[in-house]
Design a protein around this nucleic acid. Structure first.
Lengths: 336, 336
DNA sequence: ATGAAAGCGCTAACAC
DNA sequence: GTGTTAGCGCTTTCAT
């Protein structure tokens, strides 16, 4: 029969030790004033009793939670996972916990999530991208904590941001292809609208092509974001059918680009000789596949680390500057 | 100048509306008894005031949190991400939030994490694998909530589990290779000790080989888990050097297997003609790469979904049975 | 259908 | 270095 007794509280420890609950509370707070002996004895008694500190009560009383809320489009994406990893590790040093939510690339879902997360009274909230529902935007503008938008530089930031221009990043790729002598360049991306960053990359492609006086109409929509490897492969097949004389292809992500690469391999089409291919995001696959994949490194982990540092600076009342990341073109075998 | 006034509470809404705080509280609880008019008016007033429900206070008073704590070895792994996705989506239907932590494949780190997570008073805790530090085990045994071990079937379960035998799963792969006529079969995995599931796959390989009366000494240690694609490639190079007459290779994961595949491609070695290759985990890459990759589907997302349902059943006082997942061999071009 | 009183477990604020 | 008092914002419980 299981022993379901009420778990011990600080008051129980205080009783056992013959001290006040306040002394017990102090013993658990690292930098507070209790005699070393008392603290040691209290911590030992706590361990013996199987005491578990109650953050909920602590948070309510002290009106701070040690939570940082984070929304990302998908957990199953190495780029966002890296950002979350950077956030987690940097914040862990200050004993802050991430409270994570997935929007599924859907701003209505994001709104619901933001509302739910704010109920936990986080100390800061990190969102991905600069597009939100009006209500989500209002929630974020009204809430009394730092708000950090990431992976983008919003036209009108709500508060802070740590990001980069997705359009400018894609321009680097277009410039690279044009510099290599390509003129008939295509773009493989997701259906327009849902994935903000993907849409901006597409717009960046069009703008960059036009800046070079080139035709920007070779656009393949590979499906609802996020684009999988398989969708990238399917898109490649359609591209070859519709625009067989294409010379180079900009893909919305390395996953799509890798899919395109495999389709070429299956069809016996040489990369980069017949098609040069470029991806986005510097995923591990791009370093290892054959040929290796030209890509844009957006420094996913650094985005998380710098966001965390920005948050810590704000909470410490330090000067807190927005961070502009500079994505870097990495030229590999798929385009040389 | 920013407007840092204290955020409104239920008491504030009650004052504005001329009702008691209790009525406001009831208005926020979906299935509680308030007149429809009153509720509507209260919710509108709340929205106008920019009120945000305080879960912390609610949790403290009602002594439940709607949190489920989850530890996984790494966020940057599609298998664990899928499990977390299944958990999140299934629990979201009951308005439960996941509180996620990463152990970095390290049971000391897991112990720290479990302790930290339990302070938040979760309603259940999900851990990956059956190996824990003695103290972590004691914490989990003592805590008064359902504990679910996943991705493994522990020798001595702490409480519940949703998992499978990693050793048995690898045996399927070995049997497949032996059935195809291979005798000189090698294993590429991580250094022994840190990654429990990886170590069990290695032991399963050895046991299965011995059961067939075959030599089980072709073991390549590719580095500290988790094994990356690149480490898989490096391991493949060493395998070819040390055991050039190998016929088939079992890899600890699809990532390692894909790395091995790329090394073969670079060296101009034919797969599956010269080496048959098998992975583990049914990652997306294995369906798309050339040749496609034989693998074991461990049903990562289902593990999460079934874990969530188990938790919900337990919390509802339903009969709650442990779940044994049956991993399936998927034979693809890399071994036929 | 609504209200009043009490208290969840902790810690801020003050006292000594 | 330690104790006392009060109260964080909500909801349980009991009353009407």
């Amino acid at each position: 029969m299981s022993n379901i007794r009420k778990p011990p509280t600080m008051a129980d420890i205080a009783r056992v030790m013959g001290v006040s609950p306040m002394t017990v509370s102090r013993a658990f707070k690292a930098d507070s004033l209790v005699s070393a002996d008392t603290r040691e004895a209290i911590l030992k008694a706590a361990e013996d009793l199987g005491y578990v500190f109650d953050s909920t009560a602590s948070n309510l009383r002290s009106q701070k939670s040690d939570f940082v809320a984070v929304t990302i489009p998908s957990i199953n994406n190495a780029n966002f996972a890296d950002t979350v990893g950077g956030l987690t590790d940097t914040l862990a040093a200050r004993n802050m916990q991430i409270l994570l939510g997935y929007t599924n690339y859907n701003i209505e879902e994001e709104e619901r999530l933001i509302e739910q997360l704010l109920r936990r009274k986080p100390q800061a909230i990190v969102v991905t991208g600069g597009r939100h529902t009006p209500r989500a935007r209002r929630l974020l503008e009204t809430v009394n904590i730092p708000v950090i938008e990431t992976w983008d530089i919003p036209g009108e930031p709500i508060d802070h941001y740590v990001g980069f221009s997705n359009a400018d990043a894609v321009r680097q790729m277009v410039d690279h292809f044009v510099g290599a002598g390509h003129r008939r360049i295509a773009f493989i991306g997701g259906d327009v609208g849902r994935d903000t960053r993907g849409s901006e990359r597409r717009l960046g492609f069009i703008a960059a092509m036009q800046a070079h006086g080139l035709d920007a109409s070779r656009l393949i929509a590979a499906g609802a974001p996020p684009i999988s490897m398989r969708e990238g492969a399917n898109a490649m097949a359609r591209l070859i059918e519709n625009y067989p004389d294409t010379e180079a292809i900009v893909c919305v992500s390395d996953l799509a680009a890798y899919g395109a690469l495999t389709e070429c391999r299956r069809l016996g089409v040489a990369v980069p000789e017949r098609f040069a291919i470029g991806g986005f995001g510097n995923y591990e696959i791009g370093e290892v596949c054959v040929p290796t994949l030209t890509t844009i490194n957006a420094f996913a982990r650094e985005i998380g680390e710098k966001t965390a540092r920005l948050i810590l600076d704000i909470l410490d009342n330090q000067a807190a500057e927005n961070v502009r990341i500079s994505p870097e073109l990495i030229v590999r075998d798929s385009s040389r």
